[in-house]
């Protein structure tokens, strides 16, 4: 008896430590980012940093305005959501409600695979296929642009949107759908008027998750967006918050390096906000 209790306690202890490890990592990263991100912001001044439109970190008269990056990240994410959400949403409705089991199995498999493709591969295919295509189709000097990045991001967020929406749609009690069909509504009317509204918090969570993925993506967008710190314009080369950090970190020093940490901090705050929103929707879904 006593021995059993000892074992129980030990196991509890081990699990607690493992759990705390995760929390510890988050805390460590947060504290580190805040500490290393604040100095540059105070030196450049918050307003000039966030709303300055010129980033010239290596110029003789350096300028550290990250508004181009913030706007690029926001526009890029918004564009990806605008394209990815309708596709993902309808795909989720189709897969969870309409598709026959065989088609469903194959397509779900494909979606999982899409989720598993490393982002550098998305970038590579985007670089070799999408960028030249965009250049040809829109007749612009360089296809590496915000537009290309949006397309790549839209595809990258599809799996999260489809899977989370499907889970929510499949959790809708069959009784609701039966009631609607028994009133003479067609299956499609039933799915859109009863199932989707009943799953709306879950679908909202899927969208927010997509936003999180899009705003945090670095590698793929770096490869297709041209990586130039312009103010964003659809068919121009742009630089995202993530890529701003990634592309200069290796050779940066002094205030430039500190400013990169500040960018990371801004990105981190965006993600925190998105996570809070996500939790809000998931909690609502539970109630």
């Amino acid at each position: 008896m006593k021995k059993n209790k000892m074992i129980e306690r030990t196991i509890h202890g081990i699990f607690l430590i493992l759990g705390l490890l995760t929390v510890g990592c988050v805390l460590l990263i947060t504290v580190y980012l805040v500490i290393s991100g604040i100095p540059a912001i105070t030196e450049i001044r918050l307003f000039d940093f966030l709303f300055g439109t010129k980033w010239a970190s290596t110029a003789a008269q350096p300028s550290y305005g990250i508004l181009p990056f913030i706007l690029t990240s926001v526009y890029g994410t918004a564009g990806a959501i605008l394209i990815g959400v309708p596709i993902g949403f309808f795909a989720a409705v189709y897969l969870s409600k309409l598709a026959n089991p065989k088609v469903k199995t194959i397509m779900e498999e494909a979606v999982s695979l899409l989720a598993g493709i490393p982002s550098v591969v998305y970038g590579l295919v985007g670089m070799l296929v999408l960028v030249p295509a965009v250049r040809e189709i829109f007749d612009i000097p360089d296809g590496a642009s915000l537009f290309s990045a949006i397309i790549v991001l839209a595809i990258m967020i599809l799996p999260s949107i489809i899977k989370v929406s499907m889970t929510a749609l499949e959790a809708v009690p069959k009784e609701y759908e039966d009631a609607s069909l028994a009133l003479g509504a067609t299956p499609v009317e039933t799915y859109f008027k009863v199932s989707v509204p009943a799953a709306k918090s879950g679908i909202a969570a899927a969208v927010v998750l997509g936003v999180g993925r899009a705003i945090g993506e670095a590698m793929a967008v770096m490869m297709v967006s041209g990586n130039v710190p312009n103010m964003p314009s659809l068919f121009q080369s742009v630089r995202f918050l993530t890529t701003a950090v990634a592309s200069e970190m290796s050779y940066s020093s002094g205030l430039q390096q500190q400013a990169l940490f500040s960018i990371a901090l801004v990105l981190f705050l965006f993600i925190m906000l998105i996570n809070a929103t996500l939790n809000f929707f998931l909690k609502k879904e539970k109630d």
Partner: peptide, 9 residues
């Protein structure tokens, strides 16, 4: 139906 199933609206 057997179980009351009003829509969540």
């Amino acid at each position: 139906f057997q179980k009351p199933n009003p829509f969540p609206m």
